[in-house]
Design a protein around this nucleic acid. Sequence first.
DNA 1: ATGAAAGCGCTAACAG
DNA 2: CTGTTAGCGCTTTCAT
Lengths: 336, 336
Amino acid sequence: MNERRPTIHDVAARAGVSKSLVSLAMRGSPKVSDASRAAIEKAAAELGYRPNATARSLADSRSRTIGVNMAELDNPIFPEMLGGAHTVIRSRNYNTMLVSGERDPELETMELAKLLEFQVEGLILISHRLPAETVRSLADEVPIVVLTLKDLTGPGIDSVVTDDEAGTRMAMQHLFHLGHRDIAHVSGGSLEPAVVRERLYRSEMQAAGLGSMTRVIEGDLTNLGGLEAARTLLQEGKPPTAIFASNDISALGVMAACQEFGLSIPSDISIIGYDGIALGALRTLSLTTVAQPLGLMGQVAAQRLFDRMAGTQIDDRSIVLEPELLTRGTTAPPRV
Amino acid sequence: MNERRPTIHDVAARAGVSKSLVSLAMRGSPKVSDASRAAIEKAAAELGYRPNATARSLADSRSRTIGVNMAELDNPIFPEMLGGAHTVIRSRNYNTMLVSGERDPELETMELAKLLEFQVEGLILISHRLPAETVRSLADEVPIVVLTLKDLTGPGIDSVVTDDEAGTRMAMQHLFHLGHRDIAHVSGGSLEPAVVRERLYRSEMQAAGLGSMTRVIEGDLTNLGGLEAARTLLQEGKPPTAIFASNDISALGVMAACQEFGLSIPSDISIIGYDGIALGALRTLSLTTVAQPLGLMGQVAAQRLFDRMAGTQIDDRSIVLEPELLTRGTTAPPRV
DNA sequence: ATGAAAGCGCTAACAG
DNA sequence: CTGTTAGCGCTTTCAT
């Protein structure tokens, strides 16, 4: 398994032509005679020739590779967005180089640097927490598209996000329409997406004349965080009739806590999440939620990246997609 | 953002030394005088120099890259295994190049070819369905480690699997001990991991003198497949007291079907899955299952790959890890 | 239509 | 310690 791989040179020798011609033939150039082409193809096949993409990258200084950073694997929204991006990257005949800094900003920074050393032509960043300094400093070397973080948008950095204000309004309006007034919020702490959702929760409550019923328990966008936040809330005394969780996986934690306290969903208490993870559609869970078009976000991010790489003139650096309310089984009118 | 990046040559010129010395310095060689090193580092910093990994790969013919193929993003076991592999790949200072053939064997084959063109030094394949021919033919070019598919093991191909026979026995014994006798199986069709589980289900039933109660409904290891299989089963008439599903996501589908039929879990019917996806631990689901050490499998796969790459002499090509029964909330004694 | 030659940016002997 | 000389495998002028 270690006899030096055949190179373009070997193919040329065997086919009795020059390296250049083989190079042209391999890339399907029309200016290669049928005879030569046949000879070359034959030689290549016999040798089991496989072009060396590394050498090619170096020679024409194009890596045909996109770097993708995905921080956390435990929230399914990231793989879902990755899937979307991956699809378009592949359809453009590019490759995906994936790295992950595992929530450690320093490691993250190093990994991003490695991506650049590999000459990636663009970067797609999929994470709720990113070392802002690093990202900004990279932006003048390659185009970057960030998912879910609008605040990072700036020179050289595009972002693809969902209109969280509209989404949160949908969630709240849905609950209001069902008749809920005593609505609590399990937040996501200080992470960007969570902050907007919390702000809108508060303003919607206010606008509905329910300012005094506002209750926010801090979570952290994880399942366990949701579980604990809800426990805290339910221990306090009279439970709200509905809980809006900052994202789906924390909403699932909230559901678990409710069950622990003997509350049945949705008859005793309604739960609504945010994100629209595929999982939530499982009949077993049937989580009502505000869905972000996750796969589409990934696709759009990749498309925008290719546009930037092509130098297309685009002014707007932020792409905002619309969320959609998915009414499923965890919300119902409050018990009267 | 397009002024040609500085190269080692630029750094050398600026520091007043030769390229080679810069090369040595960049890689932290001890045989560089402090003076030179300082000058070089200063020049590099001022220039914003970033080594070109592509050129390096070509020069020393080592890509420091592992190719990973992950077919499906919709079953969380794959990302979980990826996470494990990724961790050790990174710890060895290697990069991960990820591709996905999206269940299309032809595409899959092309993607794998691209990986080799990028000179990956090894391949980790994470999928339940792989084009066997292709994989075998690649095996004499780079070491390969396959996850979850023991049948592919062979020359140049190692595999990391869980002892599914033992795992299935655990599942069945658990149900037997609880007192179940009328146990049905929602299978996973003809995919390798599913076949073993079905076979063992049958033999365990037989061994327990329950051969006549054996009932297998064909699923396909997807959530929907599990849902539909269970519906079919429940429509037939008297439901079994327990169902063993071939994997977790189909087990979740089975749970949903049971709920549709008004059966409550686990008092009316017990459900046990297989895989141990993180999700199953959510209190909301609390799925009893036979857990495979998913993350560990990924880690072990990567470690084995590095061993092969290093030429370490190892005879056994198949690593079999032990499964573990996770008794959670979906199983209980049958109603008397 | 085809070949020769000059790199792409870096590493790797081999001399000093 | 440091510089020189060759490549790595491929693309790309520029001739022919």
